[in-house]
């Protein structure tokens, strides 16, 4: 453990980067998932096809490929766009943070699409009829009836998606994000203790997973508070 002296603050900031990536990608993941689910349920053929292609493509390819493609691909794309406006432009790349965040939220969003779709289908049709009978508009029904009912159904699988997000942040270190994996690599070159350093990384991730799992359990209880008596 003595080898770890002096590295704790680096690990702390690395963990903070994980937290930031998790937070940003969680937001994007929900957006991608909702867009995908709405496209699949909209009844519009084109939207349905696009959403299907999205889920098939992102569920079937390795995460690391998506991350590498997002990082290097975006760099080439941005450079060629910049060269249209300014032929002098050299190499432009996007920060690994955003490349990685978008990549993992696209991947996990494709899983969330199916979860949200299933949850929207699980909303009691009677509730929606009741809303119509009360003269609620489609938007009102969506916000006040569908969303509050569907998130309870979606929560358990959604918790798993959050765990995948947390674990996928480790992959972003491959394109150079300085999160805990990166800190460990640096620490190893100095101390020569790879096992100790990577175990700390593992412990940090385990801590994050535990917090996520516990919060999902808490949220599930919160979601059930009004239905417990009804059972």
């Amino acid at each position: 453990m003595a080898a770890l002296n002096g590295w704790w603050d680096d690990y702390f900031w690395g963990a903070f980067v994980i937290f930031q990536v998790f937070f940003c990608s969680l937001g994007f993941m929900i957006i991608f998932g909702l867009l995908g689910a709405i496209a699949k349920l909209s009844g519009n053929k084109v939207a349905h096809r696009v959403a299907n292609a999205y889920t098939v493509a992102f569920r079937g390819t390795p995460e690391i490929l998506v991350i590498l493609l997002m990082y290097f691909g975006a760099a080439i794309f941005l450079t060629s766009v910049a060269q249209i406006f300014n032929p002098e432009a050299k190499f432009i790349d996007i920060p690994p943070f955003w490349a990685g965040t978008i990549a993992i939220s696209l991947i996990v969003g494709s899983y969330a699409t199916e979860t949200f779709r299933g949850a929207f289908l699980g909303v009691n049709p009677g509730s929606i009829e009741a809303a119509k009978a009360l003269g609620m508009s489609d938007v009102q029904t969506f916000i006040y009836i569908r969303i509050p009912e569907m998130w309870r159904i979606a929560l358990p699988p959604f918790g798993n998606h959050m765990l995948s997000l947390i674990k996928d942040t480790a992959l972003i270190s491959i394109i150079g994000l300085n999160e805990t994996m990166f800190v460990a690599k640096q620490a190893i070159t100095v101390t020569g203790k790879p096992f100790t350093m990577y175990i700390v990384v593992g412990a940090i991730y385990l801590g994050f997973s535990t917090v996520v799992t516990l919060s999902v359990m808490g949220l599930e209880k919160f979601g059930e508070r009004t239905t417990v008596g009804a059972k």
Binding site: D168, S209, T210
Partner: peptide, 23 residues
């Protein structure tokens, strides 16, 4: 199960490949 499901597979690969030869 808790440990192996709670940590990224990449970390597990690195612990085994880079970490174990420390001993």
């Amino acid at each position: 199960i808790y440990i192996f499901r709670g940590t990224p597979i990449l970390v597990q690969i690195f612990i085994i490949y880079y970490g174990l030869p420390q001993f």
